[in-house]
Design a protein around this nucleic acid. Structure first.
Lengths: 216, 216
DNA sequence: ACCTGAACACCGTTCAAGT
DNA sequence: ACCTGAACACCGTTCAAGT
């Protein structure tokens, strides 16, 4: 898929044009499922196959989009205190991923990260060590937080879907509150807290709790 | 989708037969993507549409399968010490989910849990409180661990796919090791640990670390 | 060199008809 | 009552052909 520019026919499409159109689709569509090769082609007024001249396949398209989305995210101002800095970095990353919800689908599909995301990793490791962790602890801590963050995004979307297509109380809560009360007193006692947690961005409190526990 | 049994034609199919065939497909297929209505029908020697008499749609099919899979998992022997018990419960749950890899797809799709999974929740909350947490802390801790567990399963599968279709060093590592060494010294320093972590079941060490940090 | 149409091998699901 | 075939509205992608 080389971009050769030699006589023949003037190129109507370009890789950039394809990517921009894809971004437009994603902006209105929401999740990555709404971006299909065929939809994109029709948006561009061409045949599906013309896209394959500018992009190897759908996987590559998504990877390129991930990269572009990430580059556009403005880097945040960071606090001096290393503990606060570490928390701030994770909240920043979480918010960036949340703003581009479709990214989760790319991550799920096996593309684990964008090349330009390395600086956040580096800064997180640096802050962890400055806060008193050994390098190995920092590496483990990073993995734990990243895993937690991905999990949070996943649960969040699952909940959003659940709420979307069902007016009735969501399935998860039905299970919790519908359980045999004698057998599960704690579940029953904590049901209100579960309900409340669904309305809140729990990441904002959970991530600090998590990090507090990991730091010495 | 009521199972009425009145004269007419003898039923060749039953809900149970459908579910059993689906389980057979999943046992050999791996992830939930391999279970399609059409595939299942051909395995049963019928038309795709005949399944819809026994199951509302594919979502309901997956939910029923999730329930059945969970019921079959044998309950583990649990240690007396509450801290150890809490860890054991999570390792148990993680392993059960790992053994039925396709379950992740159901969870991703928005079905957040099976009704019969409540007893594990209850036991976890109980162990958390016995280990010194307040009920509210126990609820938050449960959420954090569950989110982490889901994230772990997701990352695990993403890595498996990455390794499967590419002999070359996986994309994630390429990114980490290929980064500008001057800009990211810590990343570079910790690269070996990343490589090593990919070969290990990191959940076995990460989850205890996580819980240790959450407990008072 | 660049674009296209037809086709392949799939999906889940609806609808009207067959036995 | 139970099952089916044809059809609808989709996918990503290959292949041979058109300009």
């Amino acid at each position: 898929v080389r971009e050769s520019r030699t006589p023949g026919r003037p190129a109507r499409l370009s890789r950039d044009a394809v990517l921009e159109a894809a971004e437009a689709v994603l902006r209105q569509g929401g999740d990555a499922g709404s971006l299909t090769i065929r939809r994109l082609a029709s948006e561009l007024g061409t045949s599906p196959m013309s896209l394959y001249r500018h992009v190897r396949d759908k996987d590559e398209l998504l990877m390129l989009l991930l990269e572009r989305a990430w580059v556009r995210v403005p880097k945040p101002k960071l606090p001096r205190d290393p503990r606060k800095r570490l928390v701030a970095l994770w909240l920043f990353l979480h918010e960036a991923l949340l703003a581009n919800a479709w990214v989760l689908d790319v991550l799920i599909g096996g593309k684990l990260m964008a090349p330009s995301a390395v600086w956040v990793m580096e800064k997180m490791l640096e802050a962890s060590i400055a806060a008193g962790m050994t390098p190995d602890e920092a590496a483990d801590g990073y993995r734990i937080c990243w895993t937690f963050t991905i999990g949070d995004l996943l649960m969040r979307r699952a909940r959003a879907r659940d709420a979307e297509l069902a007016q009735q109380p969501p399935q998860q809560l039905q299970v919790v509150t519908g359980a045999d009360p004698g057998a599960t007193p704690l579940l029953r006692q904590l049901a209100p807290r579960w309900v409340e947690a669904r309305r809140r961005n729990t990441y904002l409190t959970d991530l600090p709790t998590l990090i507090e526990g990991l730091l010495p």
